[in-house]
């Protein structure tokens, strides 16, 4: 929290020398940089609204969109735009991803923050960040080639491109960012908490479970929420690993299709302005609102800590 420059920090007179010009120029540049994110967000939102709204008003059938699984936008006889299977697909993959990512990332965060020290800790942090740098298409490729065969062999199921495959891949993709945020939250717990716990004779595990984790709760929750947001928005890896089949899954071994993957697979060859095009933007709009809500919640939760 920097305070606005008081009068004392300004040059005594508005002298038009180089320093003054540089100062003003940098201020303007920083301002543009600062508000650009807002401008882009609003611009993207306006664009999606513009492309999707005509569909939402003219063709949109609320019941069909949210209650029908029949996504058949290119049908010659009876085009329908039921997104239920896509929503369930995205939700199920994200759910499995969180089951994978939460233990991994929280465990890693606790270890890095509370147990590791010195070189181990630095190496681990770098490795976790490197994991975040693996492109999603590479993850998708691993899902498509390695995991597919592995799941078929291990679980004796007909096809390995399914919720489990996409969920594991997505969980591993979301884990690094969740680890980093969770570790920040644990680090933010003041050392006096630890010292007090130790003074009371608590073991390390008692201290972590009863003092550190409750104190860092908000940060940990927001780490999980950001992971969920990442899962909802991920496209390429899910497209490749989920099987891309319109289906309400009965188990984790069923193929599904995600909202993002549907947009990615279909938008490129859709006639601009058609109902199909509008429907894809309606999916985009829905996705945007959901991720926005998740990120906003995460942000509010983090703000919760600061107020304490």
């Amino acid at each position: 929290m920097s305070t606005a420059p008081g009068p004392g920090l300004r040059p005594p007179e508005d002298r038009l020398d180089l320093a003054w010009i540089t100062d003003k120029a940098v201020q303007v540049l920083m301002f543009i940089g600062g508000i650009s994110a807002i401008i882009f967000i609003l611009g993207i939102f306006a664009f999606i609204m513009r492309e999707g709204l005509s569909f939402v008003f003219d063709r949109f059938d609320f019941l069909e969109f949210f209650a029908s699984i029949r996504w058949a936008p290119t049908s010659n006889k009876n085009p329908t735009y039921g997104a239920l299977a896509l929503i369930v697909g995205t939700a199920s993959v994200t759910g499995v991803a969180m089951l994978v990512a939460i233990p991994f990332s929280l465990g890693a965060a606790v270890y890095i923050s509370e147990f590791a020290s010195g070189k181990t800790r630095e190496t681990l942090k770098v490795l976790v960040e490197m994991l975040a740098a693996i492109p999603s298409v590479v993850w998708g490729f691993i899902g498509l080639t390695i995991m597919n065969g592995l799941i078929i062999d291990l679980f004796d199921v007909p096809i390995g491109l399914n919720v489990l495959n996409a969920g594991i891949i997505l969980g591993l993709m979301a884990a690094p960012i969740m680890t980093t945020i969770a570790e920040d939250a644990l680090k933010a717990v003041p050392d006096r908490f630890r010292e007090a716990a130790e003074a009371m004779g608590a073991t390390k595990w008692q201290m972590i479970r009863q003092v550190i984790i409750p104190a860092a709760r908000n940060g940990l929750v927001s780490a999980v929420l950001l992971g969920v947001g990442r899962g909802f928005g991920e496209t390429m890896a899910v497209l490749m690993a989920s099987g891309h089949a319109i289906n309400i899954p009965d188990s984790v071994f069923d193929s599904v299709r995600a909202l993002t993957a549907t947009i990615a697979a279909e938008l490129g060859e859709t006639a601009v302005g058609s109902d199909h095009y509008g429907a894809l933007f309606a999916l985009g709009l829905f996705l945007f609102l959901v991720t926005f809500a998740i990120n906003l919640t995460a942000d509010l939760v983090v703000r919760g800590i600061r107020k304490q």
């Binding site: 996504w71 096809i159 390995g160 099987g243 891309h244 089949a245 193929s255 299709r257």
Partner: peptide
């Protein structure tokens, strides 16, 4: 129309690869 629930691949080669693995 197609029956729902088919695995919709994004390229001809992907179809062949998936059939090979399944």
């Amino acid at each position: 129309d197609f029956k729902l629930g088919s695995r919709d691949m994004h390229g001809s080669k992907d179809v062949v690869d998936l059939v090979h693995a399944t």
